[in-house]
Design a protein around this nucleic acid. Structure first.
Lengths: 236, 236
DNA sequence: GCGCACAAAATTGTATACAATATTTAAATT
DNA sequence: AATTTAAATATTGTATACAATTTTGTGCGC
């Protein structure tokens, strides 16, 4: 199973070299929920696991911190971030503001090539689910959204959406309460149909309801404990 | 002349210690146009100027790179960023999308304390202009916008606005063509009046036209050369 | 058994040394 | 004199050593 080709990054990569590789590896693990919110990321430990010096680790962690995937706490170390309920609500509010209009733009700018890329995304997502790779499916699901923002070709807003999708991954790790896969299967198909028709108004409405659907699957009652903390409490 | 107190940062500071100080110092110099787009920021040079080790410089530069104030180019060094015309347009489009509605929210949430803070901002801005500190006035002008986003109390969007304002500072350094101060004096006053009345609709409309006013003062014809590059061309 | 003080160990923050790469200067060639 | 090549120098990337801070472990008194 190959993953769909991705269009060019709008957020210009800041790191290059080994620290960029480490950052990507950790980012992937976070997005696939292999590294859970609250997890401590010790410098020496990562240095040993990845056979790089602490310098490279520190650079990668700083970058992940800027992406808000990791919290750096001075003199205490780095931890996979744990968004609050308040922040979860804010993130989805911002997504609701940015993504529907971005979907509208994407529909207007859609090419056959971009459409094929989106379809490949959905295909890969379903395949991941079929073989039980739920983390991967989750990540691909988020990337589908990012791909749409790239098609819309407004780099500044696409950069924000990438950031929001990344943060959403953490939010979902903590607050997701539905048993089924992240994005309802039908929703991405319907979006691709609208894109095929170059129907911006339909795409916009579908994206809006899709995001609302995701939001309703999150348990954002103020009493909810982040899953990461709950694990800590219960461990022997 | 004291600067107005600022409300709490929504973008959680990632750096602490000497690297944070260096970052702040460089950021201030960039925002006040003392450091112009395209300027090379050599590690050893900064290390010497600020009496810190290269480690600290590198950390600060990486952080500035994440804030998009600085371009890090592998094996070549760090340079104050130079946004393109295309990016300038995107940034102002994003601001037009986010800031009017943020002004609306701010008006609804306005307190006397926040109002006083905004008024102090305007006062400080005028004082800076009066003594010829145009760079400082420019920075304060941008901070006025950031302060409004903070009052609106949506941290995720406020974080984006901070980023957009920072980027705008570079755009203005390159593309500004008006002789007068950045933000027309009347515009900030009118906004504060609307906030005093807690008139969200008015605030929203005023912010929208204010941003349009800024945009029209930028020379974003494709043939425009960034000012930084022009300097390089003309130097002996 | 619990709490406190202290020491030891672990971890993070920073400086410095070394390696890799780019830029500038000097020498050789045309 | 102009161009090419080689050498020297400067700068950036990374590893490692040292300093500072935090965490863990141990011993002692109550």
């Amino acid at each position: 199973m190959t993953e769909p080709a991705e269009s060019q990054d709008f957020i210009q990569p800041i790191l290059t070299g080994p620290s960029a590789k480490l950052e990507a590896s950790l980012s992937l693990a976070i997005h696939e929920h292999r590294l859970l919110p609250g997890t401590k990321l010790g410098e020496d430990e990562l240095s040993e696991i990845y056979s790089v010096s602490r310098t490279v680790v520190r650079t990668a962690l700083q970058s992940l911190s800027h992406s808000q995937l990791v919290d750096l706490r001075r003199n205490r170390g780095a931890f996979v971030a744990q968004p609050t309920v308040r922040e979860a609500k804010e993130v989805f509010e911002a997504r609701s503001l940015l993504e529907p209009r971005t979907a509208h733009s994407a529909a207007e700018r859609m090419t056959d090539k971009s459409l094929a890329r989106l379809e490949a995304h959905i295909k890969a997502e379903h395949e991941a689910i079929a073989v039980g790779e739920l983390g991967k499916a989750l990540r691909l699901s988020g990337q589908f959204h990012i791909e749409i923002s790239r098609i819309a070709d407004q780099a500044t807003i696409a950069g924000f959406i990438e950031r929001l999708v990344a943060r959403s991954s953490l939010i979902i790790a903590i607050y997701w309460r539905r048993q089924s896969a992240l994005c309802e299967e039908h929703a991405h198909h319907a979006l691709v149909d609208a894109f095929r028709r170059r129907d911006g108004t339909d795409a916009e409405a579908l994206m809006k309801s899709h995001l609302l659907d995701i939001l309703t699957a999150l348990d954002l009652r103020e009493v909810s404990e982040p899953a990461g903390n709950l694990r800590d409490v219960l461990k022997p």
